[in-house]
Design a protein around this nucleic acid. Structure first.
Lengths: 219, 219
DNA sequence: TAGAAAACTGACCAAACGGTCTACTTTTTA
DNA sequence: TAAAAAGTAGACCGTTTGGTCAGTTTTCTA
């Protein structure tokens, strides 16, 4: 009838295939972060990966599919130790760790943060509803955690929803607005300066919540 | 030789011309916020403004020019009462007012904030150096103001640069990430809820700086 | 009210876009 | 080592893009 292998690349298990796919994804990540979805042409992505346009389309059958794989590779990094925090844990320690983690994400993976930011700003047209739902459930669960801390008198009474937004905003900013930061700062932030910024964010938020900053984050 | 009026639209003083220009700019603002620069085609902008593509190009001779006019219309709103604050003013009052102003900007002009955010995320390729320079000088000036407050013992010792970033991050977030906020919140934020969010941000930051929240911003 | 200026439009263009198809080369495997 | 599979690239296609131009209609003004 017809060959068994009707679908191509259902098995990206081969050595060269995997290499190429990750190479293309990282090139696409950079292009999407710098030019947005529409501005990042397949040709540009191919050029920056030193591949032909056709070769890129061999591994990712369409631009939308490439973008969605880039996006899912981004979302898979969102796990955090804060996911497993319980009411018995110390809120100061848990929140400080969470902020430090998010800041470290901003430092080491700014491009991922930028692509995600653009996606949200544009209304998340390419985010499937399952992600939105999962995220919403996660937030509701963490809100009850924070509320439990408050009723236990472990921290100030602050709207937990706005607190979470506040944490995301102030940490992701260091990735998304890195160019603005560099312009103000005069140069690229060193790792020391980044640690200082992290401790400043931790100090501001924890003190704002009526919490004492753990020793480890004092500088 | 040739007609005197070689340049068109050097005088957009006529009634209909001004109306059309502002109409196009607002349509373009929305398109740029929702689809980015490349994704917002002149055709789409024209459609949403109920004009022909050629008519749009009659008022703005190129897409880049239209974008830069949109951008300058955004930047012209950046003035704030914080510009005129001196060391003799009360830091708690001044910072609270500044945060409230920025939050009100996020509520009433989210599209402007989004277009600006995308521009910065992409590295600000369309921002002229004069703006960057002006902004840098503004920041340096405000940093010395905050430092003066600190040496006067009016507030905690906190890196002023990071403090400013913190304020911008947590306020602009309510415009740029409005879709994420709505997804978590379950619905569009009402004005009351927005005021509550504003007061929460003010409380977090001021308390984080060792300042007492002015009565007017308690809720 | 006539003429000049401004506003507007459809036809058209070259370039870039995402994507397909065929054919060739390299790698893997039996 | 030969066949099968995977990888690669050039030619090509329809569509959309930003933009031009010549000509028409509307509005303003002397």
């Amino acid at each position: 009838m017809f060959p068994i292998t009707t679908k191509k690349k259902s098995n990206p298990t081969t050595s060269i295939g995997l290499k190429r796919r990750t190479l293309i994804i990282s090139a696409a990540l950079k292009a999407f972060a710098e030019h947005g979805y529409s501005g990042a042409s397949i040709q540009k992505i191919a050029d920056s990966a030193n591949l032909s346009k056709t070769n890129v389309l061999y591994y990712f059958r369409s631009k939308k599919l490439l973008y969605s794989e880039v996006m899912s590779s981004i979302l898979s990094i969102w796990d955090s130790s804060f996911d497993r925090v319980t009411v018995n844990d110390c809120p100061a320690q848990a929140l400080a760790n969470y902020i430090a983690e998010k800041m470290e994400n901003s430092r080491t993976m700014p491009l991922s943060s930028k692509v995600f930011a653009i996606e949200i700003i544009n209304g998340g047209p390419n985010l499937d509803t399952s992600f939105k739902h999962t995220h919403k459930l996660w937030v509701q669960d963490r809100i009850t955690l924070i509320e439990d801390w408050m009723t236990a008198g472990k921290m100030d009474n602050i709207n937990p929803e706005y607190l979470l937004h506040h944490i995301w905003a102030s940490t992701q900013y260091y990735a998304d607005f890195s160019y603005q930061i560099e312009n103000v700062h005069g140069a690229h932030m060193s790792q020391q300066e980044f640690t200082h910024a992290t401790n400043t964010v931790i100090k501001l938020i924890l003190k704002g919540c009526g919490l004492i900053v753990p020793e480890h984050y004092l500088s």
